[in-house]
Simulated assay, not measured.
Amino acid sequence: MRFVLERVDTATRARAGRLETPHGTVETPMFMPVGTVGSVKTLGPRELRQDIGAQIILGNTYHLYLRPGLEVLRQAGGLHRFMGWDGPILTDSGGYQVFSLAPLRKLSDEGVVFQSHLDGSRHLFTPENVIDFQRIIGADIMMVLDECPPADVSLEAARRAHELTLRWAARSQQRFSATEPLYGYPQALFGIVQGGVFPALRRASAQALVEMDFPGYAIGGLSVGEPAEVMYEMVEIVTELLPLDRPRYLMGVGTPANLLENIARGIDLFDCVLPTRNGRNGMLFTTEGILNIRNRKWQMDFSPIDPGLEGYVSQTFTKAYLRHLFQAGEILGLQIATLQNLSFYLWLMRAARQAILENRYQSWMNEVLPRISQRL
């Protein structure tokens, strides 16, 4: 993996770059559609690649480990071949899902024993075997195992989680160095900055991980219930310390406003289930604002879903037709809404990148943010 920093906006910390991976180049800043179990819900690889121009997607180690299971993925030749996606894939370590989904779990320095949310069976994730799992999955970019505490955790609990995450990061890095990729192409391993909402812990975490010299850095444990301004403060603290020549990934974020504000603070990569999940519930993100397609006001609106986007879905289907599909419970409605929302997110990233390259990110963000955030 190679990261090329092309431009830094002079009025902000916004960055435009190119992340070169074995399965293609990602132009940053970039949003990664979430394909938790090897599928971006309602969409296939052709829609992702050809219809909306997705450059990289995210998979989840916890979910893929449980289903379809590692042996299936190994026999298939890795996740790329299994799901028919030829672009880059990033996998998170599964740590967040262990702490958010597992009904019972027991944490120790060795790792975490947890019960599957599917059938209650018991499993052990360690820093070492999570690297092995991601070798089998075959992701271009892998994550270390981390402990992700909730937003309201105490300082002492956040310190324990931070220290454990650093020990796990070192062990993950050692296992990564001691093993080889399985499918003939190199993989990269990112460290994850933790520390809750405590500035001193965030600084200590970032500094320690930088000393370990990872090829890229993720920021975890944010967008978990803390106010947006606190998230932005933590991101600013961390990005001040991370190397300029390494990619930065803010995990699990977020709304369009969150993305633009964090791009201004120096973030390169994002992922979030919000555009796909909200789309399936009838909330559409458009260049004109946010709308609930189930509302009666759209019943006789025969204008395109999003006149400001050039994509097939945005221009071909009307708001009235999409509302009809939702009212009728048609699966096509879920697909159209998902395509619209991801189209919008990826358009937003392309427009942000162009503004950075032209050194006008702040003025562009100030102009576009009120418009796309308004409720229609």
Results as ranks from 00 to 15, higher is better:
366 N>Y: 09
137 I>K: 01
264 A>Y: 07
373 S>R: 11
226 E>T: 02
254 G>T: 07
181 P>A: 05
88 P>R: 05
17 G>I: 02
353 R>W: 05
48 L>K: 13
351 A>R: 15
152 D>R: 03
256 P>L: 05
342 L>A: 10
164 L>E: 10
224 V>Y: 01
359 N>H: 14
7 R>N: 13
254 G>Q: 12
373 S>E: 11
236 E>Q: 08
202 R>F: 07
86 D>V: 03
133 F>G: 05
22 P>F: 01
268 D>R: 03
318 T>F: 09
309 L>E: 06
157 A>M: 09
29 P>M: 09
317 F>D: 02
282 G>T: 04
188 A>R: 13
331 I>E: 14
167 R>N: 08
6 E>P: 03
10 T>D: 15
269 L>K: 06
243 P>T: 00
341 N>E: 08
270 F>N: 06
57 I>P: 11
78 G>K: 02
267 I>H: 01
34 V>Q: 12
114 F>N: 12
220 G>K: 08
271 D>F: 07
185 Y>I: 10
59 G>W: 05
336 I>K: 13
141 I>C: 01
160 R>Q: 15
157 A>F: 00
275 P>L: 06
329 G>P: 03
104 L>E: 15
166 L>P: 03
276 T>N: 07
353 R>N: 06
360 R>H: 06
184 G>R: 12
232 Y>H: 14
19 L>W: 15
1 M>K: 05
251 M>Q: 05
345 Y>S: 06
246 R>F: 07
358 E>P: 01
294 R>V: 01
350 R>K: 15
20 E>C: 13
147 E>Y: 14
314 S>K: 04
342 L>S: 01
221 G>H: 06
164 L>G: 08
193 V>Q: 12
159 R>G: 04
122 R>W: 15
238 V>K: 02
66 L>N: 12
111 G>C: 07
341 N>A: 09
362 Q>V: 03
113 V>C: 10
134 Q>A: 02
91 T>S: 12
245 D>I: 04
176 F>G: 12
209 L>W: 06
166 L>M: 14
223 S>C: 06
319 K>Y: 09
76 A>S: 09
236 E>H: 00
372 I>E: 09
168 W>V: 11
303 S>D: 13
302 F>T: 04
143 M>P: 06
279 G>L: 12
303 S>E: 14
296 R>P: 04
113 V>W: 15
173 Q>W: 13
282 G>Y: 08
105 R>Q: 10
134 Q>P: 01
115 Q>N: 11
170 A>V: 08
311 G>W: 09
239 T>P: 01
368 V>Q: 02
247 P>H: 03
135 R>Q: 13
273 V>A: 08
99 F>I: 05
161 A>K: 04
165 T>Y: 11
70 L>A: 03
294 R>M: 12
321 Y>W: 13
297 K>E: 15
111 G>H: 08
133 F>E: 02
244 L>T: 06
5 L>K: 14
305 I>P: 05
91 T>C: 12
365 M>D: 00
303 S>T: 15
235 V>C: 00
